[in-house]
């Protein structure tokens, strides 16, 4: 049961030294023994037993009542020793689970990988960081042959593994849609049926789907209850919320989605995000979406990629480097 025995003679000498001198160096050595014992899984009761034996060696005439008291202490410590062992076993189990999750997270990264489009006249930046190992946010770019780009931003209510599993399903559902199927409203309607049929009713998915046409400089979009994005008007240096009405995916099989369209002007920006961005917290306080926009504005002279990364770093720091929710931010800037 015990991986290693405590060295009785060493313990005895140390104890003797301490009893005679009350020397701090003996106590320092005792600390080392304690750490080594933990490392080598030496049980608590074994240490007490070593102590009793050492004491009896040093004082052969140890009074019987002291001896009994030591046996009593040993008995009291048995359950503590057990609890410690259980703790160590649970810690091992936890490490195993962690490493399994990190494998799953790597798989997820491969499964959900997407290529940021390189579009003439536009500059696109993307950042998506999970709060834990697995990401419950999802973003994807679909490159159509006619030069248009489908852009998806989605968020599963909840995070972690269940959310991540759900996202993999969404991705494959979308890939199964025929390629001529690119209208945002149609895509959300098809996807809504998939989610309604296949996903646990306690899970909700919000999604913003946009069809970006760089040649015409337009973007058409629909939203399934997703956190609204923002449009930056360079002309008067103002932000406007991109409002789009639509029910969360999976609530009803008959959901219909309205489709909107807008033109993108030179210097303007489209900002798409998940609630991990707008619901950042500083202590107990939720930040206001104006603050997000202020921060975006302060970095807007940078390239789109540097811009989103700097915004992320700002909020990561604000939250003491501990994200509470998955964070996804996409910015599309039209060149001036």
């Amino acid at each position: 049961m015990d991986a290693l025995k405590l060295d009785l003679s060493h313990y005895r000498e140390l104890l003797k030294q301490y009893i005679n001198t009350q020397d701090e160096s003996a106590l320092y050595e005792a600390e080392q023994i304690s750490k080594r014992s933990i490392q080598h899984n030496i049980s608590l009761e074994e240490i007490i037993n070593t102590h009793i034996n050492a004491l009896e060696d040093i004082y052969p005439e140890l009074p019987e009542n002291i001896q009994h008291s030591m046996s009593f202490l040993l008995e009291v410590m048995i359950s503590y020793g057990l609890a410690l062992q259980e703790f160590q076993d649970l810690r091992e189990t936890q490490l195993e689970i962690k490493s399994e999750i990190s494998v799953a997270a790597r798989m997820q990264n491969t499964l959900l990988s997407t290529v940021k489009p390189d579009v003439e006249g536009f500059d696109i930046g993307v950042v998506s960081v999970p709060a834990n190992q697995m990401n419950g946010d999802y973003h994807h770019f679909i490159h159509h042959e006619d030069g248009t780009v489908g852009i998806t931003v989605a968020d599963v209510i909840g995070k972690g593994i269940p959310a991540a599993l759900c996202m993999s399903m969404i991705k494959y559902a979308m890939e199964s849609f025929p390629s001529e199927h690119k209208n945002p409203s149609e895509i959300l309607e098809s996807l809504n049926r998939v989610v309604e049929r296949n996903v646990d009713p306690s899970m909700f998915i919000t999604m913003f789907y946009a069809l970006f046409n760089p040649a015409a400089s337009t973007i058409s979009y629909s939203s399934a209850g997703h956190e609204p994005g923002f449009y930056y008007h360079a002309a008067d240096d103002t932000f406007e919320e991109i409002r789009a009405k639509g029910v969360v995916l999976g609530v009803t099989d008959m959901a219909q989605y309205r489709q909107y369209e807008r033109e993108i002007h030179a210097g303007d920006m489209i900002i798409l995000l998940t609630d991990g961005v707008t619901e950042c917290r500083q202590g107990d306080r939720f930040i206001e979406s104006e603050e997000v926009l202020e921060v975006i504005k302060s970095f807007s002279h940078l390239s789109a990629q540097e811009l989103v990364e700097n915004v992320y770093k700002h909020f990561e720091k604000l939250q003491d480097f501990h994200l509470r929710d998955d964070f996804t931010l996409i910015i599309i800037k039209k060149d001036v």
Binding site: L82, A83, E86
Partner: peptide, 22 residues
Amino acid sequence: EDGFSTSGGLGAGLPGVKRLMD
């Protein structure tokens, strides 16, 4: 399972017995 009975404050439980014995 570790923690199943102990969390209810019932002591070491059967996993504890298993640890104590060979």
